[in-house]
Amino acid sequence: MEDKNKLFDSEFFKILQNLNINIKKSANYGASGARKSRVKGTSVEFSDFREYVPGDDFRRIDWNAYGRFDKYFIKLFMEEREALINIFVDSSKSMSFGEPSKSALALRLAAAFSYIALNNLDRVCINSLKNKELKSIEALSGKLMLQRALSYLKDIEHEGTTDINASIVKKEFNSKGVSIILSDFFTDNGIEETVRYLTYKKQEVILIHILSPEELEPNYFGQVKLVDSETREDRNIILNPSIMKAYKKQLTTFKNSLKESAAKYGASYIEASSEESIDKIILEKFTRNGVVSSVR
């Protein structure tokens, strides 16, 4: 089992410092944040600072802060609202499979999204999915809340099964936002109901499909005993080229069905192998799909 303390070391966060989660719709809820709001008003109540980035109004630079820190900071006011990022982590036993495990990557990506959101003054709510249940922490806000998010992720135990549809429909949404699901999507009844529900609740949906190298390119032949990691049911089969060909065809069909459900409701679908480096997934796949972008 991976040492969860090593999943979130300082090197891990260095690549995330200048990234932002893209949100197509303007935020119109919450307290202060770094996103432009459509909410009209005349409030000039000071809320927070953030570091200046190209494109910001230079008239809002705080010169006193510059004199103290030798860096440019701008003032944020109450018209700028935070976005709410919901992260759903599949906590079923099947996520523990693979070398490295799918769960290790899921936790690292959940931590990455949490860091990026909190670093940009958005709010984060982490939700774990297990069986038909949904367990959530309160929404976190502010950079100092990262440790609480990481502590919650470290305590997640992967066991049992998961019914993503049954779990996520229990989540109540009071505002627009972003919903990110990290899973192998080995769940009953597909995920179209989930994506439809989240879209109805005005969520921008991001599906991160995590599979292990053994699932993507199995290297088994001859007589083997397959054991379902969630139900513990087993089956003895003989793996030959025709069986492997059929497996790969079924896997392609499975992935295509997820892509189709995502496309139908305007969601993003990104596939990742648990052996891929975190920087490749974030800096290449996420940026290419418009999930994150650099703020500098």
Rank of each mutant, 00 (worst) to 15 (best):
V224M: 11
P218Q: 05
N127T: 15
A262G: 13
I74G: 00
E276S: 03
S94A: 15
L211C: 06
G67W: 00
F77V: 14
E284Q: 09
Y52G: 02
E215C: 05
S32L: 05
A112Q: 05
M244N: 09
Y200N: 08
I23Y: 08
V205C: 13
V292K: 08
P241N: 09
I181H: 01
Y66T: 07
E192I: 05
V124T: 07
R38H: 08
K225D: 08
S101Y: 05
E172L: 12
I278V: 15
L76A: 00
A104C: 01
Y66E: 03
L251Q: 01
Y72R: 01
S167M: 12
R59W: 00
F69W: 11
D90Q: 07
N22T: 06
E138W: 03
A267Y: 08
K132N: 13
I21T: 10
K249W: 00
S293W: 15
T252F: 01
N289W: 02
G290F: 09
L258P: 09
L118C: 04
Q17S: 03
Y29A: 14
L182A: 10
N119F: 09
S151R: 15
T252Q: 05
K245V: 07
K176A: 06
N289I: 06
L144F: 12
D70Q: 14
I23V: 11
N28R: 15
V195F: 04
R296F: 12
F113L: 11
V53G: 03
V205W: 11
D90L: 07
F185V: 03
K154P: 06
A272S: 14
K285M: 10
G160Q: 10
D163K: 07
Y52T: 02
A262P: 14
L198W: 06
I21P: 05
I15H: 09
S94E: 15
S229A: 15
R60W: 05
E260Y: 09
L19G: 03
C125I: 08
N174G: 15
F254E: 06
V53I: 15
E214P: 02
S47Y: 00
D70I: 03
E260V: 12
V224E: 14
E159A: 05
K14D: 11
F173R: 05
L258N: 02
K75Q: 01
E51F: 02
E99Q: 13
K143I: 06
N22E: 07
Q250K: 06
L19M: 07
M95K: 06
E133R: 07
K176H: 12
K259T: 02
I208K: 04
N165Y: 07
R60S: 04
N5W: 05
L207K: 00
K255C: 12
L129M: 14
D70E: 14
E275C: 09
L211S: 10
L121W: 10
K171E: 13
K25Q: 12
I206K: 04
G67D: 11
I243V: 15
D9H: 09
